[in-house]
């Protein structure tokens, strides 16, 4: 690895498509999400750059670590979450079908890295010493066991269909054969993936770990100031990362195309497709009530798993 490659790697992880790009897009998308939520709820809602203002305000606040907290875990958890998400962005195709970092079986690494934020939130909650945070972290573990199996099983179905664990290969398969969304055998699995993503992003009806009327803010109860700003950014980047993964899995990934005489670059295609996925989750979270944790687990392990298994059987049996 020469000097230029190292420089390229640093640029990729810190600026594009890593930390800076993902954060800016993430904050913007969640800002739009809040605006759309406002309109769906018959109110005006905040301006779409509200998340940036919130971020700036939180960064200037006092940095508090509670006396009861285990300091290294409590401080390290948000950084670990954001770091792992910046790493995920390197593995996801953003500006073209090629991700910045190529691995043979990158789907496994992506699934693994997408779990780190959840686990660090659980650790942060347990280490903070607040009963609300501990209750929230306990709920998050249960929810993790619910959605993660559905998520992995559905992605495995897509991998079986295409016959590869490489995201770039899945995208090139879709370039040749059309979007996987249009394949009726995979449709149940794709619905299951979207349901799992709703739980992964802690959006209603699965915002159970941070149910504010029951356990304040769940694992994040004791977080404030810059640490909360990092958590918020991590959450926003997670939204983008999950949406990007879904785009690559069944919406054909970022592809350039010509519209009339105008050449539209792949990055615009990526932004449009991820935006659509984020808006879908926004609409869903505004038209349902929050379910209980036992109901959520039951829902995932019956309905979610059933959908994924049906799809898996269809893919394996139907030629």
């Amino acid at each position: 690895m020469n000097f230029l490659e190292i420089l390229q790697f640093i640029y990729n992880s810190l600026v594009f498509p890593g930390l800076l790009f993902a954060s800016v897009i993430g904050l913007l998308y969640i800002g739009i999400d809040r605006k759309v939520t406002g309109h769906l709820q018959h109110r005006i809602g905040p301006p779409i750059w509200q998340e940036f203002l919130d971020f700036g305000k939180l960064m200037t606040k006092e940095d508090i670590t509670p006396a009861a907290a285990i300091k290294p875990v409590f401080v390290g958890a948000p950084l670990l979450a954001l770091g792992s998400l910046a790493a995920v962005m390197l593995l996801l195709p953003v500006a073209s079908a090629q991700p910045s970092l190529r691995l043979t079986a990158d789907i496994i690494v992506i699934i693994y890295l997408l779990n780190i934020p959840a686990i660090s939130m659980i650790l942060g909650g347990y280490s903070s010493g607040s009963p609300f945070a501990i209750a929230g972290a306990g709920r998050y573990i249960v929810q993790l066991l619910g959605y993660e199996f559905v998520f992995i099983l559905s992605i495995a179905t897509i991998a079986v269909k295409v016959g590869t664990l490489n995201l770039t290969d899945i995208i090139s398969y879709q370039t040749a054969n059309g979007w996987l969304l249009l394949d009726w055998k995979l449709l149940p699995a794709i619905v299951a993936t979207l349901i799992a993503a709703q739980g992964k992003l802690l959006r209603a009806p699965f915002d159970i770990p941070e149910a504010e009327t029951e356990i304040v803010a769940g694992p994040l109860t004791e977080y404030s100031g810059p640490k909360l700003a990092i958590w918020r950014t991590a959450y926003n980047v997670e939204t983008i990362a999950v949406a990007a993964l879904l785009v690559s899995l069944f919406l054909g990934g970022p592809t350039p195309y010509t519209f009339g005489n105008i050449q539209i670059p792949a990055i615009v295609d990526f932004l449009i497709k991820t935006f659509l996925i984020v808006m879908l989750t926004t609409v869903v979270r505004n038209i349902v009530a929050r379910v209980r944790i036992d109901q959520a687990l039951k829902f995932y392990w019956t309905f979610g798993v059933l959908l994924a298994v049906i799809s898996m059987i269809l893919v394996m049996v139907v030629p």
């Binding site: 769906l40 709820q41 018959h42 109110r43 209603a204 009806p205 915002d207 149910a211 009327t213 505004n286 038209i287 349902v288 009530a289 929050r290």
Partner: peptide, 16 residues
């Protein structure tokens, strides 16, 4: 009640 069960849209509509 809608807010308590996490259904904020209904909260806003009822208040409207």
């Amino acid at each position: 009640a809608a807010h308590q069960i996490g259904f904020d849209t209904l909260f806003m509509l009822a208040m409207r």
